[in-house]
């Protein structure tokens, strides 16, 4: 066989086998990965919205948001792409949870915030993902830090040094969490009011 033909054939065959194999592995793992992510998210929601027995994803029906002012509605919809509403046994909404994001030391810090529907108070926060330094920034996951946010409403400052104490040696990570909690809080509360 001509050498250059052989080179092309071998390379093509290897690339095709590789692509096929990866497509098969991707099919097999893809379902498990999204199932895991959903499970993890549901477990976190359970943690920050303990009274909810059933959870609905709000952004799956963005049309409910579009009302009077279309410009504003789009904004709300974008800011709250990940928002969940919790219902109790009688199908009454008890509160909502949203995912906020803040820039940390090693990348974005994503925080799930659960809010009581009636009082507008934060019930709890849970760190969804972060890439902070283990042993320092990763202490944002500790209960003593997270519990500082419980009971805060939109009327509180929610700011480092005012009503939230930063972790020693991890100011950047602490600031990221504060910012994550604040981002989307207002939008989420508006979206929640509208959805009722």
């Amino acid at each position: 066989m001509n050498e250059s033909v052989r080179m092309i054939v071998v390379l093509t065959v290897i690339a095709m086998v590789s692509g096929g194999l990866l497509a098969w592995v991707n099919d097999w793992t893809g379902a498990i990965i999204s199932e895991n992510q959903l499970q993890a998210m549901m477990a976190s929601i359970q943690e920050v919205l303990p009274t909810a027995t059933r959870v609905e994803i709000l952004s799956s029906s963005p049309s409910t948001l579009v009302e009077e002012d279309p410009d504003q509605a789009r904004e709300v919809e974008q800011a709250t792409t990940e928002m969940f509403i919790g219902f109790d046994d009688n199908d009454r909404p008890v509160g909502y949870a949203f995912v906020g994001e803040g820039p940390g030391y090693g990348g974005a810090v994503r925080v799930l915030v659960g809010v009581d529907g009636a009082s507008g108070k934060i019930l709890g926060i849970s760190i969804v993902s972060h890439a902070e330094t283990p042993g320092l920034g990763s202490r944002i996951e500790e209960e003593s830090f997270r519990s500082q946010f419980v009971g805060k409403t939109l009327n509180d400052p929610i700011a480092l040094g005012r009503d939230i104490d930063a972790l020693t040696g991890a100011t950047v990570s602490s600031r990221a969490v504060v910012q994550a909690v604040r981002t989307g809080f207002e939008d989420a509360s508006i979206a929640y009011e509208r959805s009722r």
Partner: peptide
């Protein structure tokens, strides 16, 4: 490169799942 990249991606996906 293709062989090694294929196995790295398999590890990546399987680890992500399990």
């Amino acid at each position: 490169i293709i062989v090694i990249a294929t196995f790295s991606t398999i590890v990546d996906l399987v680890m992500h799942a399990f």
